[in-house]
Design a protein around this nucleic acid. Structure first.
Length: 207
DNA sequence: AAGAGGATGAACT
DNA sequence: GTTCATCCTCTTG
């Protein structure tokens, strides 16, 4: 079953980021279906999080999507090359989002390999935020897409895979040195011992 | 109007 | 470990 919109409308984006571990993301792009289990996420939370694009609730053309009601995609271009996919959460006006950082492929591995031209090792196919979007055909044209429609191009499905708290590892988010103290917040979550996650962090905590 | 820099990844040495 | 690709967004003047 696709996750209901109410799942994404809740106010605690950090909890949502943890609960998305084990859920399945499915895309249908140009008639091709791919899917994968979400194994790594990060939470971003305006207004108090300096790492969030919408820090201080500043509205710009790009961050507009984050202020919409939860359950839609926020996709943006990073370093001019990588399309990074987030799930907007919270009620309208609350600029919260969960970055999907890695998935474990389920359907369409061959397509993923094609899209990830040149990558041979399966474990390197989807173990990063820019890698998995490429593999699953996600790009900035999907910004604002609803994720809770059973017939949607991108949807989040509950595969009834249970990830208990002792299977989750938390660590600080990287690449946001400009965020000062906020960079220390352990808002990156990964499934412990899952080989499809990005390379291990130096410091990690149980939750 | 111009310049700096980024929620990364790949290919180097 | 280092470098650089590549372009959009935001800030500043």
């Amino acid at each position: 079953m696709v996750l209901s919109r109410s799942f994404f409308l809740r106010p605690d984006v950090v909890t949502i980021a943890r609960e998305l571990l084990g859920k399945i993301i499915v895309t249908q792009v140009e008639g091709v279906v791919t899917s994968g289990v979400i194994v790594e996420t990060e939470a971003y939370r305006a207004p108090d999080d300096r790492g969030c694009h919408a820090f201080g609730n500043r509205k710009t053309p790009r961050t507009q999507t984050m202020f919409e009601a939860g359950g839609i995609a926020y996709v943006y271009l990073c370093y001019g090359i990588h399309h990074l996919f987030n799930i907007v959460s919270g009620e309208q006006g609350l600029a919260h989002a969960v970055l999907i950082r890695a998935v474990e492929p389920v359907l369409g591995m061959d397509i993923m390999k094609d899209r990830r031209n040149g990558i041979r090792h399966p474990l390197s196919l989807t173990n990063g935020p820019g890698k998995f979007t490429r593999a699953m055909g996600i790009n900035v044209s999907h910004d604002g897409q609803a994720l809770y429609e059973p017939s949607g191009m991108i949807k989040i499905v509950d595969g009834n895979k249970v990830i208990t708290e002792n299977q989750i590892l938390a660590s600080p988010r990287v690449g946001i040195a400009y965020a000062g103290k906020c960079a220390l917040r352990p808002w990156r979550f990964r499934v412990k011992n899952n080989p499809w996650t990005s390379k291990p962090d130096k410091v990690a905590y149980a939750i």
